[in-house]
Design a protein around this nucleic acid. Structure first.
Lengths: 228, 228
DNA sequence: TAGATTGTTAATCGATTAACAATC
DNA sequence: TAGATTGTTAATCGATTAACAATC
C-alpha cells in the first residue's frame, strides 16, 4: 500500500545525507555574509563545499524553491531557511557532564551557547570539582543531575566523562527525559529507539586517517575530503 | 571496457562506508577482549554496534574469510586483521598546531600517542607560549613548522588553531609534504587532490542534534544513532 | 546428525550526478 | 534577445539487507 499522503500537511522528509550537509552550507554562507556577499550560485557553493553543483541544488531544493534562475541564491535568505529547517531558530537547553579538560573547555569557551545551544549546567562526580566555577557556571554534583534535567526540561546532554562512566550517565539522562546526546567517550552507547546519539571519537577519526596514509604509502592514495 | 584485473596483485578496495565502520568494530572488539571474550558472532557484534548482522558479516568479509561457520569470529584475530587493514600496525608521526585549550589537551592527554599516532611536536604563534612545556613537549615556534615537517617526515597534522588561521596553516603543512589533516576549525579547507582531511566540527554535530530535537517536538522523531 | 553461524547472492533501497527544459 | 543559472528528471552508482547454501 502506498503511503497515504495527507492532504493538509506536506511532510517533507529530507534525506539524511542532505541533512548532514546543510550545516556545512550554513557555515559557508555565514562566512560569505561576512565578506558582504549577498548572492551565490550553486556552482560557487559547490566549489567551497567540495561537492557537486547538482548536489547543492538538490539539497537546497528540499528547503523549498528559493533560488532565482539566471542569478543564484540570496545568502541571507538561504541562511534563514537552513536555520529554520535545522531547528536552529530555537534555543536547545544543553548540559555538560564531566568537568575535566574537555567538559571545561566546552563550557568556558561559549561556542555552544552562541550557536543556540546554551549550556545551563555542568556536572561532575568529583567532590573537589563540585562548587568550583568554570566559565559562568558552578560545577554541580552528579547526584543533582536527574532532578535538574527533569525540572529544567533539558534537551541535549554532552558526555565528557570517562568511557567507564558514559553508559551509566547516558542511562540516567535518558531516564530523566533527555532526547539527544553528544558523546565524546570512545564507547558505543546502548540507547532506546527515539534517542539521538552523535559520537565524536577522535580515535575513530585518526584511524581513518591512518588508513588513508597507508593507501598513500602503497601508491593508491585517493582523494578524500570528509566532513563530519 | 571492463577493468583489466592484474593477475598478480588483487587490490581489494574496501567500500568507504565499510572503512568508516571498521574502527567501531575495533573498539567493540577491544572492549570484549577486556572481558575475556575470545569468540564473537556477527549477531553479537551487530547488537553492540547498532547495525544489521548481515552488514557486519559483509564488512568483515572485506578483510578476508576469517570466521568459522557455526562458531563465529576469534576476537584477537579480528582485532589484528582490522588493525592491519586500517594501517594501525604502523606508527604515524603526528604534530599538533595550536597550543590553546584543545591543542594542549590533545597533546598532554596521550590518547593519540597510545593509539599509534605519536604526537612529536606542538606549534604555536604566540611567543608567550613558545618554549613552555605541555605534556612531554616544548611548544615550538610556528616558523619552524615547515622545516620540522620536512626533516621529520611527519604524516598527520592536527589543526587546533582559530578558524582565521586554519587555511594558511593547512597550506604550509601541505607544502611541506603532509598528507592528512585532522581539522578542528569550523571552516571548509581547500586542499589539493590526494590530501585527506577529516573535519571535527562540534557546531555541525550540535546542529544535527538540533534538527532531531525539532523533529521530536513535531512528534516525528525517528531513531538515529550516528557514529562519527 | 542437529544446531548454529558464516559467506555470498541478489533484490532493494537510497544517494549521486549529468543533462536540459524552464526562466530570470 | 543572449547569457546564466535554477529545479528536476532519469540514469547510474553504491550501500543495505533478507535469504539461504555451505559448512563447522
Amino acid at each position: 500500500m502506498p503511503a497515504p499522503e495527507t492532504t493538509s500537511t506536506r511532510r517533507r522528509r529530507i534525506p539524511s545525507a542532505a541533512v548532514n550537509r546543510l550545516p556545512v552550507y550554513l557555515q559557508i554562507l555565514t562566512d560569505l555574509q561576512l565578506t558582504e556577499t549577498s548572492q551565490v550560485s550553486s556552482d560557487q557553493l559547490a566549489v567551497l563545499a567540495n561537492v557537486n553543483a547538482a548536489k547543492v541544488r538538490k539539497d537546497l531544493s528540499y528547503l523549498g524553491t528559493y533560488g532565482t534562475r539566471g542569478v543564484g541564491y540570496e545568502v541571507a535568505f538561504l541562511i534563514y531557511q537552513i536555520k529554520r529547517e535545522l531547528g536552529l531558530l530555537s534555543q536547545w537547553k544543553t548540559i555538560v557532564v564531566g568537568a575535566g579538560n574537555l567538559g571545561s573547555a566546552i563550557t568556558a569557551n561559549g561556542g555552544f551557547t552562541s550557536r543556540g545551544f546554551p549550556v545551563i549546567a555542568l556536572f561532575d562526580v568529583d567532590p573537589r570539582k563540585v562548587g568550583t566555577r568554570i566559565g559562568e557556571l558552578d560545577v554541580r554534583n552528579l547526584d543533582e543531575m536527574k532532578d535538574f534535567v527533569k525540572s529544567n526540561g533539558v534537551h541535549i546532554g554532552v558526555l565528557a566523562v570517562p568511557s567507564t562512566a558514559a553508559q551509566s550517565v547516558a542511562d540516567d539522562l535518558i531516564a530523566a527525559g533527555i532526547g539527544s546526546l553528544l558523546n565524546f567517550a570512545p564507547v558505543v552507547l546502548t540507547t532506546p529507539k527515539g534517542v539521538t546519539v552523535r559520537n565524536v571519537d577522535l580515535g575513530v577519526e585518526l584511524q581513518i586517517l591512518g588508513y588513508h596514509e597507508q593507501l598513500r604509502g602503497q601508491g593508491t592514495a585517493k582523494q578524500a575530503r570528509v566532513s563530519v
